[in-house]
């Protein structure tokens, strides 16, 4: 068990013939993801370098392969349309990696998804993707190979650890607005013998699909998740809402980090959504709100693994 995806999930790549789509399709296949094909309009009937079938439309791809998840690398001007195409074709989990989609496009897309496709889960855009780690079967470090997992996205698979490969036997869920900070949290957990059930990069854009609460809800319900690491940043109030929700509904420990304490007001910090507008958008305001809600918040991005180990009641040897 995990959330959203597992080893049996059949995955398509939208934009499979682009440089990024092709590169990461190979990376996902190597990790053990059940990639079943790709979509590039006009290239239907061909095969990619890995021998996967390419289709003209997502509907054709879903009919032929039975795919239920999609990894989207469509360029920004067409990405929102690609998301809606996947939803219309019946894809259940759409993971939009594309960075740089206009906000107006996402406002419209999110509204249509909510109205017409309420069962569809959108992850991203502007995110590293989602991974349910597999079990290590051979090799070490970057050369390790895994089976039974599902990686949809651009994260380095080898840093993740399945619970059965840990000394603690514990696994946490990770949800984050930032890609590389997620890797940092995964690394610190794996390093301390804490596995991961599923890691979801929800993305750095102001209007997106899944949010913190959607993930917390699923992690709380997942019997194989023992705790949650939640990584937020400046901009918006999603983390504060999530903290309040967690205080009322979560029985599992949640450890948080909010990036951007040193970020100046009014300056966009890379992510389209990472900009301090009002007093509630600051990292300090979010950290205090989360602490008031009873969550453990690490002051340092290097302290996440340690804080999680303590929260899980693991001994000093793990911390």
């Amino acid at each position: 068990m995990a959330i959203l995806i597992d080893g049996s999930t059949k995955v398509l790549c939208q934009g499979i013939t682009g440089a990024a789509g092709a590169f990461h399709t190979k990376g996902c296949l190597d990790y053990g993801t059940n990639m079943v094909g790709g979509v590039t309009p006009g290239k239907g009937g061909q095969q990619d370098a890995n021998g996967l079938p390419i289709f003209d439309t997502v509907t054709d791809a879903v009919e032929a392969t039975g795919a239920t998840a999609s990894m989207l690398f469509v360029p920004p001007p067409f990405a929102a349309d690609g998301i809606l195409e996947a939803a219309t074709a019946g894809v259940e989990v759409i993971c939009a990696i594309t960075e740089g989609i206009p906000v107006a496009d996402m406002v419209r897309t999110r509204e249509i998804l909510d109205r017409d496709h309420p069962g569809v889960v959108l992850i991203g855009p502007n995110c590293p993707g989602v991974i349910t780690p597999g079990k290590r079967v051979a090799g070490e470090g970057p050369d390790a190979s895994f089976e039974g997992g599902c990686k949809i996205g651009i994260m380095p698979g080898y840093i993740h650890t399945h619970r059965t490969d840990t000394a603690s036997g514990k696994a946490v869920g990770i949800v984050s607005r930032s890609g590389t900070l997620t890797y940092e949290a995964v690394w610190q957990c794996s390093d301390r013998g804490i596995g991961q059930s599923t890691c979801v990069g929800i993305g750095g854009d102001p209007v997106k699909g899944m949010n913190f609460i959607d993930c917390l809800e699923r992690f709380e319900a997942d019997p194989e998740t023992d705790g949650v690491v939640m990584i937020g940043e400046i901009g918006g109030t999603d983390e504060v809402d999530a903290g309040r929700w967690a205080a009322q509904h979560m029985t599992k420990p949640v450890v948080g980090f909010i990036a951007g304490r040193t970020a100046p007001k009014g300056k966009r910090m890379g992510h389209a959504g990472a900009i301090i507008g009002g007093a509630d958008d600051t990292a300090d305001a979010k950290i205090s709100a989360l602490r008031e809600a009873g969550l453990e918040v690490s002051d340092s991005p290097a302290g996440l693994g340690h804080a999680m180990a303590i929260a899980l009641g693991l001994g000093a040897e793990a911390t």
């Binding site: 590389t180 900070l181 940043e233 990036a259 040193t262 910090m269 990472a274």
Partner: peptide, 15 residues
Amino acid sequence: NGAGLAMGTMDIIAL
């Protein structure tokens, strides 16, 4: 690399 880690790095320097 990465906006979140870049902010996190600034924060840990300040710490």
